[in-house]
Design a protein around this nucleic acid. Sequence first.
RNA 1: GUGGGCGUAGCUCAAUGGUAGAGCACCGGCCUGUGGCGCCGGACGUUGCGGGUUCGAUCCCCGUCGUCCACCCCA
Length: 415
Amino acid sequence: MISAIRGTHDILPGEVERWQFVERIARSLCDRYGFAEIRTPVIEKEELFAKGSGESTDIVQKEMYAFTDKGGERITLRPEATPSMVRAYVEHSLEHALPFAKLFSMGPMFRYERPQKGRQRQFHQFDVEVFGISDPAIDAEVIDLAWSLVTELGIAQAELVINSVGCPDCRPKFHEALLAALGDDLPKLCGDCQRRAVINPLRIYDCKVPADQPIIDKLPHAVDYLCEPCATHFTGVRSHLDAFGIPWTISHRLVRGLDYYTRTTFEVLGQTLGAQNAILGGGRYDGLVKKLGGPDRVGIGFAAGIERLVLALPESVKVVPPARAFVVALGEAPRTEALRILRELRVAGIPAEMEFEARSMKAQLKRADRVQAALAIIVGDDELARGEVTLRDMRKSEQRAVARAHVVEAVRTSL
RNA sequence: GUGGGCGUAGCUCAAUGGUAGAGCACCGGCCUGUGGCGCCGGACGUUGCGGGUUCGAUCCCCGUCGUCCACCCCA
């Protein structure tokens, strides 16, 4: 037997309805908030992510499905959406057509990691990006969309955390302060932290080693070292969120693992996801468009893990299939007529099914029951002779004769 | 990449060093043209794969693959 590749999954009927529910709400929200859909390729040049996501990130260093194609080009399956969105924005000069571009996309992402709860090698993201708007109101709008997604899906016990990581002007000062405060304690931290101190001191806040926590708890906070514009921006974001009535808390430890973030960062954390508790995460990336060869336009966005949304969905989300009819045929001549009825119903827009194997009426009705058919249309020699069918209401267990010519109308009114 | 748990019927799981069983699901009968409930019957397994120990392995050992959880990282 050939099985699916490790870390990839088939989404089967019964499960896929929950996905469709999530996707439906996401699209509906984008409609309401004025976001347009964009679809970008699953494969990109490797350098897009080396430059975009950041050479130092784990995603680029060890998690990309990168390979050389038959033309000798370095290609990768996309590990995240943002660089692709930026590339498309730059490549098509969307700053002209869409000066204030509000875009969304959904699709598979790929990271070579060890699978666990809420983490697959092929996973799916709902991704939202805005280009060209720097007002803190847009930060709040993007966060509002993210929060509305979670609440409209009925995900309980979700928590919104925000932070500001500053900009290239003020972050060096914060890094300095961080290292100064660390001082003699630095050698006491874990190996990962020692490396972070050199590459990206901010990410010391990501550390979960228990022994390091007392030291990290005493470190200065990024928000206290923001430059004037960044501080004003962050205050604006918070007051807009308050105006929207969205509950937030500041997490000084929310620094995120991608290099491009500036100013606002945020995550929504869930309860039912095991160790992978981030349902969605994002932030502002004001230098990224320019870095990828585009105009100097700001950006902000987030990505939500669809698997994680589905995991966090309440059990009670059961998608009820539309009412349907089931055609039952008894014998050869009735079967031909039954097939015509089946097609008439479908052409008329009525979901209808039929058992094609010549089985007993009992078996056919059992099948009708299995597919939760609301109506059975029974066609046998008796009905054929009278120019009728028997219309059985499966829920009420009542049935009546209906003229052959009026079958579609009778079914439509009885469903 | 590291650590641990688990791989037995389609699904959920039992069992024993002497060649496997239940519940659900499936098919049929009771009901010769009437589903759900009930009763009766049927079909279904190279016990993940490879090797080793043993007279004999589903069980013990080694390897491998898969899976789950955690670290790491992140959606």
